[in-house]
Design a protein around this nucleic acid. Sequence first.
RNA 1: GCGCGCUUAGCUCAGUGGUAGAGCAUCAAGUUUACACCUUGAGGGCCGGGGGUUCGAUCCCCUCAGCGCGCACCA
Length: 713
Amino acid sequence: MELPKNYEPKDAEGPIYKKWQESGYFNPDNLPGDRKEVFSIVLPPPNVTGTLHMGHAAMIAVEDILVRYHRMRGKRTLWLPGTDHAAIATQSKVEKEISKKEGKSRHDFGRKEFLKRVEQFASESHDTIVNQMKRLGASMDWSREAFTLDQKRTTATYTAFKRMYDAGLIYRGNRIVNWDPKGQTTISDDEIVYEEREATLCTFRYSKEFPIPVATTRPETKVGDTAVAVHPDDARYQQYIGKTYEIADFAGVPLTIKVVADSSVEKDFGTGALGVTPAHAAIDWEIAQKHNLPSKQVINEFAKMNEAAGAMLVSKKAAEARAVVTEWLRANGLLIKEEKIKQNIATAERTGGIVEPLPKLQWFVAVNKPYQAPSGETTLKEMMLRAVQDRKIAITPDRFNNVYFNWINSLRDWCISRQIWYGHRVPVWYKGEEIFVGTEAPQGDGWAQDEDTLDTWFSSGLWTFSTLGWPEATSDLKMYHPTSVLETGYDILFFWVARMILMSGFLLNDVPFKQVYLHGLVRDDKGRKMSKSLGNTIDPLEMADKYGADATRLSLIIGAAAGNDIKLSEDRVRGYKNFANKIWNISRFVLMNFDGFSPDAMGEVTGEADKAALADFEKAKVETTAQIEEFKFYQAAEGMYHYVWHTFADKVIEEAKPRLADPAVRASAQAMLWTILTGSLKVLHPFMPFVTEEIWSKLPDWKGKQLLIVEKW
RNA sequence: GCGCGCUUAGCUCAGUGGUAGAGCAUCAAGUUUACACCUUGAGGGCCGGGGGUUCGAUCCCCUCAGCGCGCACCA
């Protein structure tokens, strides 16, 4: 039996995937043999915002290695796929498209019609993404596929909300939140991106009589000031602490300013005195709470000055108002100095809008509030800390333990309500003063459901168990949870990994996974982030078509240690295509020399050289196995690459050529080559599933031959 | 401000307390029982600088520098 001279991945890969799917082996229920040990992974669900990029391909490559390896090790192996509705990301994408193409906003459609458009888009993205994952060879159990916004996951989300509400861990509160004027919604602390910009720090007095000068970069908010805070130990201002000053006219409005002492004030910044604007800065809000100060909102949801800001400023944009107030200060001799400083400005990750802190009535998850867990009283924060501290969850690479702890320690209550339309509607109904929280609308007339939707991470936090049927006590949940490994990019450690630990810890009193493996970000060959605007993206599908899915996957594995970014270039991918072809030709050579050989009647390996070659292979195999177990995929792949090319092909095969020609030792050499070839195909399979399966199918049949995907490691 | 990572061949990166490694790139030669998507060979390095521990340091410790990242602050 002879193979064609070259391996053509494009022709081979489609039919092989089909063969795998038809075998049913992606579903653990169908796997052959008695499988007691379980291995489970849930796919980090890609957002239905378009198409897969190289980062997704890297994720799929790593997870498929794990899954195929453990399946071949004889475990009951589940890789559960799904997609994420990604609330704000998807909605803003569709809004942008509609605005660009039709010049309309979501309000021109209304909630119902607009949602139809988003769902249409999401459904198309979903189909694209699923096909792309299949193209890359992902051995996922499609029969269990889930979507964060489907019926079952919605039930899970509502159930989670209700249980947390009943436990007092979800509350509605009027607090200062991050308001995105562009997206017209609140966002969580984690959805903020800081950008460094130049700002003007103005030092001024509220009036000629007011004793303490104050510094600010936002003069326009000062019409909303109700206090000045100084450090309690600041000798300069001791005499004023506790006094209240009436300012008759500050940029057209009267102010009442109380001087308070608060240790959060930095003595050395500006004048050492902070003008307290409770409604428009998070710290000021906290100070105001502590000192019982009134709050006066002067900026509205559109980042424009409101009525309370006075006639001089009303309806002006914040930036315009800033100039007006500065001019007014100058004209009235109250401006002491102006200096340029560098400032980190908070912007919304999705829309780029400048975040305006505003007081709003929102839903929050209380992370510091004690609750009764089965193991005793704790808080969500403490529980999240414990999970990793007590090594119930191990993070690879382990330096991210510290990153995780830092984040938990500075964690504040999580704002989970969003003023967007796409997502899980907050499961709360109001009727006058009455509030109903439940998984379904209450009986009776006059109830109105909360208009807001939930932060997308609220539902994706449930992902490891909502996908397994929770809140029902399904056999899947019992069998596959906690999952074995959570594999994802380090950039969503906080967004997602931490939230999963929170949700699983509270709702199941268990960890969501035992092991976290964090991969790096895929960058271009110069180390820049891949982005459409830079034009430096490499499309995984295009690479798969040109060089094969195997080569694409290998290029994302080799040279990529856990948590390190990957620099990718097309050359790299090309190099691994050559490797696939090498494996092909090794097999071709072996098959060409197999006259008179039958796997079922294979003789002993008797020659010394043959025995030595087998021992070398054994060694390589053992090493590779250990490396996979230790999550050193790059080393495992590179090691096998090197063994197969430079030991098996260059030495073992070359040196076996004369023996194959000698009838006396031919049988031994054949048995040796057969053993190493089949063994290598197995070890390579998790890394290069297509070419290995294709070659496997071309090998002569033997008793008990199966698809390579379920062969024993 | 707090913390983390990186610095090794032209490029991308592994690696180990005991004579420096791979892939790609470069150069030279080559048509051999599979493979030119190949083979054989060659060149190329004060392992970022300085100090320390050690018989011995690229590796461990200290320090400096450059690059990158995260978190917090930013009145």
